[in-house]
Design a protein around this nucleic acid. Structure first.
Lengths: 343, 343
DNA sequence: TTGAAAGCGCTACCAC
DNA sequence: GTGGTAGCGCTTTCAA
């Protein structure tokens, strides 16, 4: 009977195959594969050659069973289609990949039952660590929907009350960045269209913004602050108009999102004013739409990739159980384009 | 010595624990867990109770080793941050999740060496099937960077020359949809700002568009066709202006992307014309920016979630090795908003 | 330096 | 119906 009848799924070569073919036992091959030093040079070479010749690759499942670790991370998110999730996931994947880890992707849709189901599956698969990532909000999240049996986890773009490592953008610093830039660019009557009050980030940004303005000798005129009910362009348009009605000599608007900024720019245009000559605009987020505005929008970039990367690293680090949990505030970055005079 | 010194990572309960605690052997427990019928009712009940009491969950790694299957899919993409990847991934995750499968995420950055590395890891982890997903283009891709050892795979939003199941949007139908809608809406001088020539999709859309127009008794005037060098708003703006210069009585523009349409709308506005009263605009893709345009943009929605879902299902189906590979064209959908008079 | 043996947690075959 | 046994592919003592 021919051994390889179906070429489709040939039996994969195992440790034992290598052992047999190089005239040693499985133990020795295992040692070679794992870089142990207690193997004779000639035996090692023979094994190495055979591995190459046979194209042997260790079965991770078997190794995982034996080692009680799977070299696998998981991202569980409440919104796989959130506008920021992509970039963060790429960061996580980068970090995991560099360490030889795989990453599972789970979407809970923010539903607790679903999260529970997903978590149980992940625990059954023995993932080594979890990353809870929020897609559409920054805010406190409840405990994981399931006791995690000692599996370590970190929060990314969200936080809980547990003793858990947490990765967030530095919103305070982001606000300060906008303030510095606008003052540098010669603005003196500066308004702030902030995002919705419910979002923790908005308080932080306001704080950073006003504090920095004060430090720079341009204390913020609170009457020029607006809390937008949403992050959308429509509200940016409306609020910018409202501001310009009240203060005709307004010369700069800092917006809590690129969408708000887009609306604000439309409002400025509609009055026949020029950006940045009459009014300078700064956005927040650095979504792709920012650079395609006319003029291209100066904005504060959320460090999404770095945040994801850091979360991945922290998840990995948690496996060593050596470091204490911490909260990380990743610096935002000022991206100067044409809607301000700076740069 | 206390058994549970570290509460952090208690030993997990195994099949054997359940067996012991219910006075049967592992075999019997296994049968119960797997819903076998050859177990006595009272034994079954006892086992079930114990499972519940102890909180037993089968170890997937062990099961995977034994069964030679991991209940795991993998997505390998060349662009994790592509504007369409999110939605497709969610579709895949939905399909996988419903079947109790997990999904690995891999980013090759379009780099062949990286893809090779990733694929090898996935094979080592014994994933059951792969989904190759393109993030930023529709086009022929080379063979997988590694012989897949019989692991089945499908293409999503890209295709190769192999005998491989492939999931693509129905671009021909999408073009036709736009034609029908515009004619219904009373347009008679219709232009088409198509995407770049290199993209396979653009030829398909043009074909569907013109064929349908002809069928409707409004043959397409080829002089009103433009091939944009990019998908961006800038080019949409420029080309729309060019078209309006040449044909003053233009009353509709079909654009190959929502970004192109955004540019076209700006051009129309700049001339003091009204949308949709003077000129109707239809986009393509249905990205989130579409519904926030002023007026909100009528567009042809790419069925990204459905495509991902279908790809997931096909990957799952390929495990049964019963169906022949096929290429699927998932219908686009007309989303009527305010930039056209239809609806 | 090498290998025999045990075992990670599970399923399946085949007696009883 | 039930359980003993073997084994999935690997790592790790421990003895030789």
């Amino acid at each position: 009977m021919p051994e390889q009848l179906s070429a489709a799924a040939p039996r994969r070569v195992t440790l034992k195959d290598v052992a047999r073919a190089s005239g040693v036992t499985a133990s020795t091959v295992s040692k070679v594969v794992n870089g142990r030093r207690d193997v004779g040079p000639e035996a090692r070479q023979r094994v190495l050659d055979t591995i190459d010749r046979l194209g042997f690759h260790p079965n991770s499942v078997a190794r995982g069973l034996r080692m009680q670790r799977s070299d696998t991370l998981a991202i569980v998110t409440d919104d796989l289609e959130g506008i920021f999730t992509n970039a963060m996931m790429r960061g996580v994947e980068d970090a995991a990949s560099s360490a030889g880890f795989g990453v599972f992707l789970c979407n809970s849709y923010g539903d607790r039952d679903r999260e529970q189901l997903q978590l149980q599956r992940l625990l059954d698969k023995r993932v080594d660590a979890l990353i809870f990532m929020s897609g559409n909000r920054v805010g406190r999240r409840p405990e994981p929907a399931l006791p995690l049996q000692g599996t370590p986890y970190v929060y990314l773009y969200e936080y809980g009350d547990a003793q858990v490592s947490t990765v967030l953008p530095d919103d305070v610093g982001g606000g300060a960045l906008a303030a510095t830039h606008l003052v540098d660019a010669g603005a003196s009557r500066i308004a702030f269209i902030n995002g919705p009050r419910e979002w923790e980030a908005t308080a932080d940004r306001l704080h950073g913004f006003t504090r920095e303005l004060t430090a720079l000798g341009h204390p913020f005129d609170r009457s020029l602050l607006r809390w937008s009910p949403s992050w959308n362009a429509e509200d940016g348009y409306f609020l910018a108009n409202e501001l310009m009605d009240i203060v005709p000599d307004l010369d700069a608007i800092f917006c809590g999102s690129d969408d708000l900024a887009t609306g604000a720019m439309a409002a400025v245009h509609d009055r026949g004013l020029s950006i940045p000559d009459d009014v300078q605009i700064v956005g927040f987020d650095d979504r792709s739409l920012a650079e395609h505005q006319r003029p291209p929008l100066t904005t504060i970039a959320l460090p999404l990739h770095q945040m994801g990367h850091l979360a991945g690293e922290q998840a990995l680090a948690s496996l060593e159980r050596t470091t204490a949990p911490a909260v990380f505030r990743v610096p935002c970055e000022l991206v100067v384009r044409k809607s301000t005079r700076g740069g």
